[in-house]
């Protein structure tokens, strides 16, 4: 497989995952405000912070209002953190790699972009927003289902899955970092709605029922962190994503350096114990994991995408 094709498949995997995760995060945040009493409304701008997109926001808007935050994350096609940007990029990646994908993959992403273009303008009101975001999540899931059920387990599959799981691990750690910080910070003032906020955090990473099934109905910081970082069976936990990277990369040629690196992050996470980590140290830990993921991406590009003349 051409390096260029592999790289586009990898990015198709990343962008689709990013679109889905962004939609889920925004959607859960929207539900949160319905549940909390007037006066304790959470900060909309936290959504922008999750993406480290403060600069992107400043390029387009002045005031951090609910509308502006949604405009940025949903429909600003020129902002890399928006759903519109992610889906369009995924479409362009799939346009040039459709020969490596199952029949129907191109039609599906094409149809998804048509849906997005048609509904974007009307998707900003609170009511329509939820419908739009849910549809985006469902369409992304449908696409993943299509790949899982009909793409041969070869190079194309491996590169899409690598992209998808690096992105997923990255998003989950970002959401945890900002979410935990905010909740802990505001502990004093909003203690009565704390369980709701923890649940929202789980919802944002699609872990609510999975958490309940394996940990029970009580939610708190340590349990959540343990679960979302270290669950061996939950497919969106950080460690699970890393296992997938390991599993997929071991199918690829010239993979030793990459595997060693992924395993070193896995070990770091296994050593993590939420109860023993203070808030400042948690942020430092999350940053380390994030750095590790960035290095994972760099190493992946170096190994499979930039095979220069030797």
């Amino acid at each position: 497989m051409l390096s260029r094709v592999a790289e586009r498949l990898y990015w198709a995997g990343r962008y689709l995952e990013r679109a889905e995760n962004t939609a889920r995060l925004v959607s859960s945040h929207n539900r949160l405000i319905l549940d909390i009493p007037i006066g304790s409304e959470p900060d909309w701008f936290a959504l922008v912070e999750v993406f480290n997109a403060e600069n992107q926001f400043a390029q387009f808007f002045k005031r951090p209002t609910e509308m502006n935050v949604h405009k940025l994350l949903l429909l600003k096609t020129r902002a890399p953190c928006s759903i519109a940007f992610s889906l369009r990029s995924a479409k362009e990646d799939i346009r040039v790699t459709r020969a490596a994908l199952p029949d129907g993959a191109w039609e599906h992403i094409n149809e998804m972009c048509i849906y997005m273009d048609e509904s974007l303008g009307a998707s900003l009101s609170r009511r329509n927003r939820t419908i739009f975001l849910n549809n985006i999540i469902q369409k992304c899931q449908l696409f993943n289902g299509l790949l899982d059920s009909s793409l041969t387990r070869g190079l194309a599959f491996n590169f899409i899955k690598l992209g998808q799981h690096i992105e997923r691990a990255d998003m989950v750690t970002r959401i945890l970092n900002v979410g935990v910080r905010d909740i802990v910070k505001q502990e004093e003032s909003f203690s009565h709605i704390k369980p709701i906020r923890w649940n929202t955090l789980l919802e944002a990473v699609s872990a609510k029922s999975a958490f309940r099934q394996s940990m029970g109905a009580t939610v708190d910081r340590d349990l959540i962190l343990e679960f979302v970082f270290k669950s061996e069976t939950f497919p969106r936990s950080v460690i699970f994503c890393l296992y997938v990277l390991n599993e997929r990369a071991s199918q690829l040629p010239r993979t030793e350096e990459f595997l060693t690196h992924v395993n070193s992050i896995i070990r770091k996470i296994k050593r993590f114990s939420a109860g023993k980590v203070e808030q400042e140290n948690l942020e430092r830990f999350v940053q380390k994991v994030q750095m590790g993921l960035i290095e994972t991406h760099i190493l992946l590009s170096k190994t499979w995408f930039d095979s220069e003349a030797t």
Binding site: L2, S3, R254
Partner: peptide
């Protein structure tokens, strides 16, 4: 094109 005038393509397995 490499120094021996061979044409190569860049693939995930190398050139």
């Amino acid at each position: 094109v490499d120094s021996e005038n061979n044409v190569n393509m860049r693939t995930v397995k190398g050139n």
